[in-house]
């Protein structure tokens, strides 16, 4: 069964004012357990609005959201349950830290779940391990940490709730390439170890294609595509038409195709590129 399902999800901001804008429209989704879904779309496409529906922060204007088969808006109880079933980590989460120590901040979520002291301790330490927060850092003030460390602590705070679905909105925004790889690496590691569903929102496919199993493309308020990374990259030209970036190597192959060379255009890694070129040479299509 799908862990997350939406039906005709529609939402608009500032309803009933002259500023009313539709942010997402008629979105139908079904996400299977254990997937690592990359949500791609450029700024203003409605990605952030969409994910805030999954834990009931926004109430859909029309349509339904099911988490683990349960309609989250059925009652107050199901709504509250959805907050813990879907862990949402916002953009620049480091600005939400507030406790005296890193430990207490990570424990904020589990504490709200009214868990026992031992269970909270276990979860905090496990989340700290997943995010590479060392033991001695747990007793420091979160405000004494570096930007990258704060970001990892904030992500740990959401992971510690052990949500069935972990959603991260632009977890790598504003980080250098090394920081970006660290964050993406730990997310991948978290998913492999726990087998839980993860969603990463990003405006750049380059970033997440390496670790995602499925890709959801949001364009102009609608769910434009949903499929495996390969399936999505087969439609690179459509992605470019939507103004989304595709990897450099894909661009090269699209360029080759334009020049009349019959290459595949669903290529997004250097290894695939190499194999394709060798293949073409073997077939005698190109020679060098």
């Amino acid at each position: 069964m799908a862990i997350l399902k939406t039906e005709h999800l529609t939402y608009s901001y500032s309803t009933g004012t002259p500023f009313e804008v539709t942010a997402i429209e008629d979105i139908d989704l079904e996400i299977e357990t254990g997937e690592l879904v990359a949500v791609i779309g450029h700024t203003g496409s409605g990605k952030s609005t969409l994910i805030q529906h999954f834990n009931g922060l926004l109430k859909p204007k029309e349509g339904k959201v099911y988490v683990d088969g349960q309609d989250i808006w059925e009652s107050k109880k199901t709504l509250r349950a959805s907050r813990f079933a879907v862990g949402l980590c916002f953009q620049y989460p480091e600005y939400q830290l507030f406790e005296e120590t890193v430990y207490k901040d990570i424990a904020f979520g589990p504490k709200n779940m009214k868990l026992s002291e031992e269970e909270i301790d276990r979860r905090v330490r496990e989340a700290a391990r997943f995010t590479g927060v060392p033991d001695d850092m747990l007793e420091k003030s979160p405000f004494d940490l570096s930007g990258g460390e704060k970001r990892r602590v904030a992500i740990a705070g959401v992971m510690a709730m052990e949500p069935k679905i972990l959603i991260l909105d632009e977890p790598t925004a504003g980080l250098d390439p090394k920081g970006r790889d660290t964050i993406l690496g730990l997310i991948q590691n978290y998913r492999e170890e726990t087998g839980r569903t993860v969603m990463i929102v990003s405006h750049s496919m380059d970033d997440v294609a390496k670790i995602a199993t499925k890709v959801l493309v949001i364009n102009d308020k609608h769910a434009a595509m949903y499929g495996t990374v390969d399936e999505i990259y087969e439609r690179s030209e459509e992605l470019i038409a939507m103004g989304l970036d595709v990897p450099q190597v894909t661009k090269v192959f699209l360029g080759l195709r334009e020049k009349g060379i019959p290459v595949r255009t669903d290529i997004y890694t250097v290894e695939q590129a190499r194999a394709e070129l060798l293949d073409l040479r073997a077939k005698g299509v190109v020679a060098w």
């Binding site: 805030q52 834990n55 922060l57 907050r83 813990f84 862990g87 949402l88 980590c89 916002f90 989460p93 600005y95 939400q96 904020f108 979520g109 709200n112 779940m113 705070g157 959401v158 709730m161």
Partner: peptide, 13 residues
């Protein structure tokens, strides 16, 4: 609003 949402997402009531 943003911080409120973020803390609500962590179960703040």
């Amino acid at each position: 609003d943003k911080i409120t949402s973020a803390q609500k997402a962590r179960g703040a009531d």
